[in-house]
Design a protein around this nucleic acid. Sequence first.
DNA 1: AACCGTAAATTTACGGCGTATAGATACACT
DNA 2: AGTGTATCTATACGCCGTAAATTTACGGTT
Lengths: 250, 250
Amino acid sequence: MARERTRDDARGSAAPARRASDRGKYGRLSRERVLTAALELVDREGLSALSMRRLGAELGVEAMALYRYAEGKDALLDGLVEALYLELEERLSAGEPADDGWREGLHRVARATYDVCLAHPQAVPLLATRMLAVPLARRPLAVLKDHERVLGLLRRSGLDEAGTAAAFRAFTAWLLGYVEVELRPVVDNPDEPDPAFRLGLHRMPAQDLPTLRETAPALAEPGGPEGLSAGLDVLLDRFTGPDRPAPPRR
Amino acid sequence: MARERTRDDARGSAAPARRASDRGKYGRLSRERVLTAALELVDREGLSALSMRRLGAELGVEAMALYRYAEGKDALLDGLVEALYLELEERLSAGEPADDGWREGLHRVARATYDVCLAHPQAVPLLATRMLAVPLARRPLAVLKDHERVLGLLRRSGLDEAGTAAAFRAFTAWLLGYVEVELRPVVDNPDEPDPAFRLGLHRMPAQDLPTLRETAPALAEPGGPEGLSAGLDVLLDRFTGPDRPAPPRR
DNA sequence: AACCGTAAATTTACGGCGTATAGATACACT
DNA sequence: AGTGTATCTATACGCCGTAAATTTACGGTT
């Protein structure tokens, strides 16, 4: 009994040869081609559309062929994170300003990361999930290089190891959190003309949530890069200032 | 031909009755019981262990029975988020200090959120993924109530709607980012006595990543609640101060 | 040009997943 | 005791990740 075929039968069974050469547009597979296609697919249809079979089809290849370039699905997702950081590195080295101060450097990194994330919103959840799943030393090399860059900039501010670590955590937390909050959808029904309905305010109990309802329109406005750098500045002041350990509250 | 059974056959086929009464420990299902069991399962075995079938088994029930209490898997995950925020609400109302200032209130909320997240580290990725998938108005009620509380506290600082929204984003970004960074694993092999191997430093190219390697031990130390509230303080200063719009950088 | 060894991709199969649909069962109320 | 409704089970379908075995393609040697 014949199993259902897709690629071959569709072309007719009389065609004799050249079975594998109509694969992807450019000959053989490669890790880069796999990751690029994966990121494109995620950008286009979201994370849930990314499966080994689907990605294989996208590349004109069976699912198992991908296992030569990523050990499994999880490794593929880590590869996507890597791809994001490679894109970040690209943007950062493009038009690199000879050498400004450490503070400007950190703002540049933050802004570039922000831009990359907004360019691939569907992939951003990976930054949360995979980074929580993979210990520091096992993160993709591009990620570690980014860490190295940020840590180097922070050290140039005169911090010791402990202070650098604390400032690094603050930098990373703010950047990551800001991007995630920026990408949270607040509009419920974009096609609705009435602003209140567009926000879906009718779903919120009016008596329990008065402030939320009145603030919702303002929450629909994005924070933008200005908000990012404003918060970053005060955090850097705080975590690279002279009074290193936090004065205990209360 | 007999299909493979699990529950019934295990008890022997002679047992006459009471088939459904040995379900969960306490009679029938309920949304709360479902969500509690789901959260327990996630805490115990991680998010990837949570499936409809598995959760059903945990409750002594078939998978489809769960669909009466959650519309589907996604709704179940949203329910988990809800459960986290319900636990937050519990902690916040326990021993509520009559009425301190808005700033103390925000610190209390931040600290309680931090505690809840550290108590359920395996569930934290949901805060990133589900919040990016669900528009504001469709978030679980407990989440919206939390928003309401924070927004109310911020308004009490004298901000207008736009300022409140900006400060809310900053608060949320910092809190969420801080928790996620705090939960990122940096130790690679906990059983290793040698600190360098424990961190997995041997996996990092020494020449490309000198600063990372020297900072790694310090990165292994958690930031703790002190770091959270230190950053929160300066952010609140910045986003509720008199100079409302961020002075443009450069 | 024929051959061969290795690399690359396919085939097949297995168990688990989410869930639509339909049927069985339990329970509250008269 | 009987009945209507709420609750749970049974079954099936298509998709998923991936282990193992197999086939195909290709570069280097003769």
